[in-house]
Design a protein around this nucleic acid. Structure first.
Lengths: 353, 353
DNA sequence: TCAATTTACGTGTACGTACACGAATCTAAA
DNA sequence: TTTAGATTCGTGTACGTACACGTAAATTGA
């Protein structure tokens, strides 16, 4: 006898108090049928009285449960290694939970090829995963996919971007509008009357630029709210080759004589930094994301601020959220907006992307 | 037979391959004596070959292990509720790991009473904890305590501040010097020639002000490195009553006619904000920590930047680090420097302190 | 060489839960 | 009353590991 006293818990004790066997208690706990209403109530009341919570370790052990989480996110590309960060967060989390029998089934799609999303999504569904982590970059394709997932009853977590009215288990990612406001505030500190600003949205025609719009809206809102009337010009660039960007940017820049600050609404800010360096322009430059290229220009002082929303932590939290949901650990928040981090030359070395 | 095939792992399989019983394998795994060198080597090589890792669930279940983590941190006080944040992180982590048999034994000391540290430290040691989380605010007292802890072989994590040459399992907290540099950079954006700056260190005589010095050093270093020669004045205030601070601050302020920015090196920045509000002064104000009072002034635009180092996450990580250490999950880094977060009026609502 | 140790190993039970199987009781139709 | 069928419940084994206990083999001393 290992534990002398205090055998206050466990199905055995419940069974003893209810004058039934542990099998019956087990049935009640898992709402299986085959128990009379009377004994079920009796057992439930004892469970409540004892504040019984099942021993996870024993439960997992007995179940020999192996859960598979499917992941569907963009492939990191030559253009940007952004998605390596969420991926590393996902892998980190996995390394912590795999001992509890959790497997990962990771699928990548190409941000430039919508068909690849469909293809991987279908492939993924066939494996019947127990949970899904999705970066819903393509809106229509995602909605179609999500409806299938929902009918299968697979819990789902969105990361990086949300899609309205889809109600996943949880959304983990940024609040785009607010991050635009923050960019505006940072610039506003250094603004004097008559300074102009440039908002640069760079994306291929294929990509959904909804994200960028939200940021720009937040950016402009800030100045409205604070009654700051410096001129803001928007520059949309739909062709992402270096030359195209340079041509478009320099044309716009030459039209506006007192541009003091440039706000690039996504991680392509390094391409603008390159141009600024080449033409030796004197402007404040703000952009997004902790990417190698961006950090390079940040440390050269060509980019002044990077706004970042913990891509690695997003991946980590996504896995942990599914894990916690399926193992009934704690409560799950339906949306986790990541902190909006400000990265500068002085703090980037401590940033854990 | 639940698992049809793939019985590739587990002590049983090891035992089978080595032609021994699981008892012998068990002895080898736990380096217990009573195994011949030959079979030990054989078993070890099979373990290596199989890449065997013990099933934590089964192991914990069999051990019926209950681990106690002792925590020794300052009591949150009227002056500052800072320590409620690390505490909440500790509790959050606990809620996630208590199902694995981890208990917490939390002790608080009074930052104004050194004796309370000693007292609680002694009390704590008597309970023979399996791990310790320590905020070593008082240097000498901590060193004495730490040596006792070390002789007992109790793994230990420091949070919030470090003590050199003590080599805990891990240090989790800020890099003070670097955060001072960041403050300097933020100010430098808005600086014009002849602007002056004020560095304000507020602490009781009892407290160790080593922290504040490190930040000030970083702050000054930034300007040196960038060859910026605006005047910086240091103001040390050793009496923390509101009146004393106001008198000292206003005296200094009136001596320097073009103070553009004030850098308060700890969380007492709200007291300075109060003065600035009262006297309607027009200066940039930077300080530390996500406290209610500070946030109030931040949203009133009286404080412009708060530097924050995730106190909640520090507590969370401390518990998780001990947990992971004792359960042999992953590898433990000897120092985890928290990201240096910049909090402004526009992003504070998303900050998870 | 034989007993007394020591060394080396095997066996059995326990941890708390899950679940298959089967036994007992009850209900209702013949 | 008999019996088929449903309902309600108990029993046994398994999950992978830890550890106490017991036993066989090797070693030592005389």
């Amino acid at each position: 006898m290992r534990n002398k006293s205090a055998e206050l818990t466990g199905v055995k004790e419940i069974a003893r108090r209810a004058n039934v066997s542990i099998g019956t208690v087990d049935r009640v706990i898992h709402n299986r049928k085959g128990v009379s209403e009377k004994t079920k109530q009796k057992i439930n009341s004892i469970i409540a009285e004892l504040g019984y919570t099942p021993n996870k370790m024993a439960s997992l052990l007995a179940q020999k449960k192996v859960l598979t989480f499917a992941v569907l996110i963009p492939q990191a590309s030559r253009e940007t290694d952004y998605w390596t960060y969420p991926l590393s967060g996902i892998n980190l989390a996995h390394s912590e939970v795999k001992q509890f029998g959790i497997h990962l089934d990771i699928h990548f799609y190409d941000l430039n090829v919508k068909a690849s999303f469909r293809q991987e999504a279908d492939k993924l569904l066939k494996t019947q995963p127990d949970g899904l982590i999705l970066a819903p970059s393509f809106v229509d394709e995602s909605i179609e996919f999500i409806s299938k997932v929902k009918t299968l009853g697979i819990p789902m977590v969105f990361i990086n971007s949300d899609i309205p009215h889809q109600e996943p288990l949880s959304y983990i990612g940024p609040d785009l509008f607010q991050s635009g406001k923050l960019a505006a505030q940072l610039i506003s500190f250094m603004l004097v009357p008559n300074d102009e600003m440039l908002v640069v949205n760079i994306s291929t025609a294929l990509e959904n630029d909804h994200h960028l719009r939200r940021k720009e809206l937040g950016f402009r809102r800030y100045f409205e709210e604070h009654a700051i009337f410096n001129k803001i010009t928007t520059l949309d660039i739909k062709e992402t080759s270096a030359d195209s960007i340079e041509t478009a940017f320099m044309r716009s820049f030459s039209h506006h004589h007192s541009v003091k600050a440039v706000f690039v609404t996504n991680s392509r800010v390094s391409q603008v930094a390159q141009i600024i360096k080449k033409h030796n322009l004197n402007v404040l430059l703000l952009g997004y994301d902790f990417l190698k290229e961006n950090i390079k220009f940040l440390s050269e002082n060509l980019i002044n601020f990077l706004i970042c929303q913990r891509p690695k932590e997003q991946g980590y939290l996504a896995v942990m959220t599914l894990y916690r949901h399926l193992f009934h650990i704690g409560t799950i928040e339906s949306a986790v907006y990541m902190p909006i981090d400000i990265i500068t030359r002085e703090n980037f070395i401590f940033y854990k992307a």
